[in-house]
Design a binder for these strands. Structure first.
Lengths: 192, 192
DNA sequence: TTTTCATACTAGACACTGTCAAGTATGAAC
DNA sequence: GTTCATACTTGACAGTGTCTAGTATGAAAA
């Protein structure tokens, strides 16, 4: 991550923070270090984000926005395609993903624009499940299946990102193959 | 969490840390604060755990041990029973669970006894899947299904713990009902 | 009985962190 | 020419993990 001082500081701080989150996790982000690397004073970043939680909220908002785009791009491939897209997004945008799901880093409720993006992504999943289940599905069915699909994608993404799975299941050829197979298992129980 | 100074300090520190992890997340754990609350010097806890990562490793080890017990206790209920047990364990032992899955807090590889407990829990799942799939399942099938089941349980646990799911799917009657239903969906695609 | 030695701490210092408060330069709006 | 918001800088503060060094205690060894 090279820092060009001509970049607007807000963008620089965000990019550096996301890169650190990707490589060492969100907790490794030190805004003072980011400021030093960017060649500005230790308080400069805070001007743009208010406090530490503010930068996490900004990362989360950007992440949910990108997630929505990823889900839309795969929305023709049905539920299993969306599930796959979710996992691939997490792996490709690990820096964002790690922050998005860490409610303790910042209470997203305090950042309405972040909530908006999160809801947008969730609604895409909800709509996909609703249309997959057909017209006669009950509200309960829809919610259960949504929770199920989200759980599969989220669980696989988290396990792959945080390590244990790949080591335990090594020899599974290719992560991409695993993702496809798991996503297909997830939809095997759904009506077609 | 009341602190009885007659308790051995190691146990006290562990209990307080787990309670904080449950209520505010592992990052809120300050060993200096724990020491103050326990009425000992700020370095006393470090004597028992070496450094901050050491206490996380101890919590993780204890957690995986408890998880194995929970899985064994439900091992007669098949794969879906194990999946349910995993999620229930996470909710009931949130303080431990939050630490167990946070590879950035401590690299478990450096703590062999923690790795041992983690492997023990994982092997219980692997064995259950192997026996559920029957004798003619390929190694690939076993690994795929193991990843799938683990993903479902882990994803649901994480989503329930970190909040977004319950809010999004409110009105789903009872969390316990949701867990059972999702676990059943997870096994719907498996041979019987 | 005295020495040795590990255990379980205490005490002080260090660099580092996020955050609060107050100041400064700059450029646009009126 | 003044007002005023924006984008910073500077300095201080409490809090943190960790390093180093010291102390009390009790059991084992001489």
């Amino acid at each position: 991550m090279s820092i060009t001082t001509s970049d607007p500081l807000r963008r620089v701080v965000l990019d550096v923070a996301v890169a650190i989150s990707r490589d060492e996790g969100p907790d490794a982000i030190s805004l003072r270090k980011v400021a030093r690397d960017a060649g500005v004073s230790h308080q400069a970043p805070y001007h743009h984000f208010g406090d530490r939680a503010g930068i996490f909220a900004a990362i989360a908002e950007e992440g949910f926005s990108k997630l929505s785009e990823a889900l839309i791009a795969n929305h023709n491939d049905g539920i299993s395609g969306m599930c796959e897209a979710y996992v691939r997004f997490a792996l490709e945008h690990a820096g964002h993903f790690r922050v998005m799901m860490r409610n303790d880093l910042c209470d997203l409720q305090n950042y309405p624009s972040a909530v908006f993006q999160a809801d947008r992504a969730f609604n895409l999943l909800l709509e996909a499940v609703t249309s997959a289940l057909g017209n006669y599905a009950t509200d309960d069915d829809i919610k259960t299946h949504t929770a199920f699909i989200w759980s599969v994608g989220h669980g696989l993404a988290t396990l792959l990102l945080d390590g244990p799975l790949e080591k335990k299941l090594e020899g599974i050829a290719d992560v991409n193959v695993l993702i496809s197979r798991v996503a297909r298992l997830a939809t095997a129980s759904m009506p077609r």
